[in-house]
């Protein structure tokens, strides 16, 4: 079996890092709506991925209120690339 990255294998985390490939950074509530998860779930996943160095976050403002902006790091981008390649390899083996 190809090497799958346990840090981004959970569907919500894979969706989070994949979504971040489309932007340089996204505001927290925008991400939450795209991923259709609660604040606490998103916050938990962002914290875990920040700790792993896959994602960066910073405090900022949006529409006059304080919020968190989240972006993918180069490490996270590479990890996603390798994880997706491993998943595709798995699919190809069976097909």
């Amino acid at each position: 079996m190809p090497d799958l990255d346990p840090l981004i294998h959970a569907p919500a985390r894979l969706q989070l890092v994949t979504t971040l490939t489309a932007v340089a950074e996204a505001e927290f509530s925008t991400l939450r709506e795209a991923l259709q998860v609660s604040d606490s779930v998103l916050s938990k996943h962002v914290s875990a991925l920040v700790s792993a160095g896959y994602v960066r976050s910073r405090k900022g403002t949006h529409e006059g209120r304080r919020t968190t902006w989240v972006g993918l790091t180069d490490v996270g981008r590479r990890a996603l690339h390798e994880h997706v390649a491993a998943l595709r390899e798995l699919i190809d083996v069976v097909d």
């Binding site: 894979l14 969706q15 979504t19 991400l31 795209a34 991923l35 259709q36 998943l87 595709r88």
Partner: peptide, 14 residues
């Protein structure tokens, strides 16, 4: 397949 599709869908929603 389902995980990749769900990830693409989430990015598409954004």
């Amino acid at each position: 397949r389902a995980r990749l599709a769900a990830a693409d869908l989430a990015r598409g929603r954004l």
